[in-house]
Design a protein around this nucleic acid. Structure first.
Length: 742
DNA sequence: CCGATGACTGTTTTT
DNA sequence: CAGTCATCGG
């Protein structure tokens, strides 16, 4: 016990040993948040205050859940079995499987990931003959998810105008379709569980009594519905409610776009009359130069709960800043720098390359690849999202649940078997009249379409029957053969990688089975013969995108978006693409709220670094197939000059209509020296009249500072397009507009 | 009904 | 640029 609490600082100790009351822990980056959370659980159990089964711990990602279980396993002599640890979605899935009847679902319901959901919506619009120009599927998806997160079923949505009314109508149709097909999307997992607990008193009471301590990680990223869900579970039951301990950092809230409500932190404090608010502000991760930069940046945000990170580790190295001509130059420079670091004995796994959006990884990957540096990309298209895997899963889904029309539509003609659009249309019309799933409709059909479809149906039925006694990997192997998927990819010229992935699916299944057996044999007694294990595997595939990327063990440079870097830390961090429009992203720049979220994202990125931080940007960048010229990010200007060291001489930056500009606006530091590696500016851009060129900074009397991004015409008709930052993008006639080189 | 070809269009971040 | 979608000729 004393060992458990050793080496905690006073605030951490206080948090770990709080009495069983509600508490809010404001935990800054690198302040030992995860440690506090796990130690708290271990302490509660070890001191006999609670049985493991009385613990409910909610994490943000599956990875975090796994890590927490692993740490607990190492801390506790007893197995952490009986505890519920997982993501909101994972826990809801578990609850719905256990109480599927009360929730109005078949036991083997399927889970739609975002892409499946979008496909389902498109299919719905098609069958209803709705104009998808007027109701863009993506927008409709957003609308539906938003309503679900607000707890609104279609009848509860307030709709005054026609447009909203129609969308509500579609929402309703979508729900009916999902129910018919026994599928559940992400938001539905949460809402369905919430309604189950709310309406079913015995079940609610059962869990309210069971869970004595509810611990929530990354609380700043919970959405409204998740918060209500927590309130319901922690509400005062007969025995008094659970103690709710929420850990979060409002400065690291980066999922507003997905419905996260930082406001939950304030609401929690108020509604639960939280007496215990503890701030963890000592950072054990980074040197103070890095921390001071992060603090300086985040100070530009308003509406913070307030918190200041500090460290006693000393200043450390200055933050290195590099300006490149083009994105390819930026990538080349990063790779050269990495080679130097590796020569100096650094391990590649301790070097991270962060970027704002996934598209940016291509250039970096390209350079790394040609330099022969092992690297690993997180995120991007994940294993279970690859098309060959989705196809295989669709067959599996049909075995588990033939009414899954999304799965049916996906593979009914893949590999092609002579069932074309016309047949599908006939089938869909029939399904609508009989009000049955596509699968169940097939026997009703006669004629040509009926025969081909009948053959498909028989194949699926054979699969269902033949696979009953097989183990999961055997089952999948059988399906890959019988469906023709394997043959299809064998004959495809670029199919070898896909074949490998299909084999990898077998491995994933084998691992899944092994883990399940090792994990909790007593959790839910698997009913044999019902393909129960298959359903569990499919849920696993939907909920956990799967880290089946490159070799985990290899010493490889780590590439990921800033979002997926949250919670991780590295000795060396490169943050690339620090340009206006990219980071902060152009879609977020106009809204104050959006910009603040970008800044929090920047804060997250900076605080990932332990020892060394590189920030870089490029004057020009390929995006959407064309070259764009961006100003350097305002976030760079927000870092006090004394903390930085420019590796390239900074060029003057066009001002941004005054929104920022703190930090004194001084770009040079005393230690800045012209980099020896600086190349001559390349004559990359054609000259324009008046000695101007594309990419050049200019000033205009009315619009202020800007940069030339394009030109057209000639002679007296010559025009240039200038990006004036917050003053907008303008086309100017050179003969008329007075532009001075800046 | 199938596959190929070309136009178009869009991208932030993810459980 | 790259993935999706529509159109066209077999």
């Amino acid at each position: 016990m004393s060992q458990l609490l050793a080496n905690l600082n006073p605030e951490q100790l206080q948090a770990v040993t709080l009495p069983p009351q509600h508490a809010l822990i404001l935990a800054g980056a690198g302040s030992g948040k995860t440690r506090v959370l796990t130690t708290r659980i271990a302490w509660l159990i070890q001191s006999g205050q609670v049985d493991p089964s009385g613990i409910l711990a909610v994490t943000f990602t599956n990875k975090a859940a796994k890590e927490m279980l692993a740490r607990l396993g190492a801390m506790l002599p007893i197995s952490p079995r009986g505890m519920w640890v997982g993501t909101f979605h994972g826990l809801c899935n578990r609850l719905l499987r256990a109480h599927h009847r009360d929730a109005g679902l078949p036991q083997l319901f399927q889970i739609l990931d975002s892409a499946d959901q979008l496909a389902a919506i498109k299919r719905l619009l098609k069958t209803l003959n709705v104009d998808d120009e007027k109701f863009p599927p993506r927008e409709l998806q957003h609308f539906i998810n938003g309503q679900k997160e607000a707890g609104n079923r279609p009848h509860a949505v307030e709709a005054w105008d026609d447009f909203t009314k129609q969308r509500v109508q579609l929402y309703q149709e979508y729900e009916a379709q999902c129910q018919r097909e026994s599928v559940v999307d992400f938001a539905e997992l949460l809402l369905r569980t919430y309604e189950l607990l709310e309406r079913n008193e015995p079940i609610r009471r059962h869990y309210q009594r069971r869970f004595r301590h509810i611990l929530v990680d990354e609380f700043q990223d919970t959405n409204r519905l998740q918060y209500r869900w927590l309130k319901l579970l922690a509400a005062d039951g007969a025995e008094g409610g659970a103690a709710l301990l929420c850990v979060g950092d409002d400065d690291q809230s980066i999922y507003r776009f997905r419905g996260a409500e930082v406001g939950n932190m304030r609401d929690f404090e108020r509604e639960f009359q939280v007496k215990n608010v503890i701030r963890l502000e000592q950072n054990y991760r980074s040197y103070s130069n890095i921390l001071d930069a992060a603090n300086a940046i985040i100070r530009f945000n308003t509406h913070r709960l307030g918190k200041n990170l500090w460290t006693d580790q000393g200043a450390g190295e200055p933050i290195r800043i590099f300006e490149a001509y083009a994105d390819s130059d930026e990538a080349r420079w990063i790779v050269e720098e990495i080679q130097g670091l590796v020569r100096d004995g650094r391990s590649r796994a301790e070097i991270a390359l962060l970027y704002r959006s996934n598209a940016q990884s291509r250039v970096l990957e390209h350079r790394l690849f040609s330099a022969g540096i092992p690297y690993r990309v997180y995120g991007g298209l994940r294993f279970f999202e690859r098309q060959e895997i989705k196809h295989a899963l669709a067959y599996l889904r049909l075995i588990a649940n033939p009414d899954d029309d999304t799965a049916f539509a996906r593979v009914v003609n893949f590999p092609t078997r002579g069932i074309g659009a016309r047949s599908i249309e006939v089938l869909q019309d029939a399904a609508r009249t009989y009000n049955t799933s596509l699968y169940a409709t097939v026997p009703h059909l006669t004629g040509k379409a009926g025969t081909a479809l009948g053959q498909f149906l028989r194949m699926i039925e054979d699969l269902r029957r033949d696979t009953g006694p097989l183990t999961l990997p055997e089952l999948i192997d059988h399906v890959l053969d019988r469906s023709g998927l394997r043959d299809h990819y064998k004959s495809e010229k670029e199919g070898s990688e896909r074949l490998e992935n299909l084999d990898e699916l077998l491995n994933a299944a084998a691992n899944f089975v092994a883990e399940q057996q090792a994990g909790a044999p007593g959790a839910d007694p698997a009913d044999p013969g019902e393909h129960r294990q298959l359903a569990d595997f499919l849920a696993h595939a939907s909920l956990e995108a799967g880290d089946h990327q490159a070799d985990q063990g290899a010493d490889a440079v780590q590439l990921m978006t800033v979002h997926s870097s949250k919670g991780l830390e590295f000795d060396v961090v490169f943050l690339s693409g620090l340009e206006e429009g990219l980071f902060p992203h152009e879609n977020s720049i106009l809204e104050a709220e959006g910009l603040e979220e970008e800044r929090r994202l920047m804060y997250v990125a900076v605080t990932r670094a332990r020892e060394r931080l590189y920030l870089s940007f490029a004057q020009s960048r390929m995006l959407h197939g064309q070259t764009r010229y961006n100003l350097r990010s305002r976030f760079l200007e927000e870092i006090p000059a004394g903390l930085t060291k420019w590796l390239s001489p900074p060029s003057p930056r066009a001002a941004l209509g005054g929104a920022t500009g703190g930090a004194g606006g001084a770009y040079f530091t005393s230690s800045a020296k012209p980099a020896a590696t600086q190349r001559e500016p390349r004559p990359a851009f054609a000259s324009l009249p008046g000695g101007l060129r594309i990419g050049q900074n200019v000033s205009h009397a009315k619009f202020g500072q800007g940069v030339i991004v394009a030109a057209e015409g000639g002679g007296s008709d010559a025009r240039v397009q200038v990006n004036f930052g917050s003053a907008g993008m303008k086309w100017l006639l050179l003969a008329v507009a007075k532009l001075d080189p800046a």
